[in-house]
Amino acid sequence: MSRSLRHGAFAATALVFSIGALSACGAGNDAQTLQVRPDNAATAVDSIKIQNLNIITQPEADAEGPAVIAATLFNDGTKQEVVEKITLPGTDATVKLQAAEGKGPLVVPAGGRVVIGGKNNASAVIDNGRQAGRGGNVQTVAFAFSETGDIELGAAIVPATGFFKDFGPSTLPSAKPSATPSGSASGTPDEQSESPAGTPADSAAPADDAAATH
């Protein structure tokens, strides 16, 4: 085999290996969450890496409801890290943290990772989603770690549609109740005036029935 052919064969082998390695990295639990997208914020400080950071709001721009923070936290150190709090500097927003198990602090184990956002994962919820900012903007997110300290980076604000649909807020706005027709209340006094007065036994019956149902 000529020298040029040998080099070409080696390059092809390396390319196949690279594709296989990337495919293997994408397999496993939360593969979609771990996917690195070019428009997602990422940074590394000491032993902590933050990837795929986004603030995900309601699907509709004018909808009321919570927003969530989605990210993957990696800990390459020998000590576990506790996410003590997450804040949005420059806003009045409060971020509520909850571990995947629902109890205890949000811990990033030594040599491990934690996924924030998505089904069965830890969560970081902003009750008033409008406080997170407008869709399309970038909002600074500050993580406070027990060992590494504070890490700040910008997160894109995106609606819970398309790729982000499964990582968005679990609580969506409910439909607004329809207005009561104006004519429905006007007939009530007339109907009540026709009923005989002074019948306490009859008037108490509905209350007794209601209590029995409870």
Rank of each mutant, 00 (worst) to 15 (best):
M1R: 15
T13G: 07
T13L: 15
S18V: 13
G20S: 08
G20H: 02
C25Y: 15
N29F: 12
D30F: 10
A31W: 11
Q32A: 08
L34N: 11
Q35C: 08
D39L: 02
A41P: 03
T43D: 01
A44T: 13
S47D: 12
I55P: 00
Q58A: 00
E60H: 13
A63W: 05
E64V: 12
A71E: 08
L73S: 02
K79I: 09
L88C: 10
G90K: 06
T94E: 14
V95A: 05
L97Q: 02
E101N: 13
L106D: 07
P109Y: 10
G111I: 11
G112A: 11
R113Y: 13
R113I: 10
N120A: 13
N120E: 09
N120H: 13
S123G: 11
A124K: 07
R134L: 05
E147F: 11
D150M: 09
G154L: 00
A160Q: 02
T161A: 02
D166N: 15
P169N: 04
P169C: 03
S170F: 13
P173G: 04
S174E: 12
P177G: 00
P181Q: 00
S182V: 06
G183A: 11
G183F: 14
S184I: 12
A185H: 01
P189N: 08
S195F: 15
A204N: 14
T213E: 07
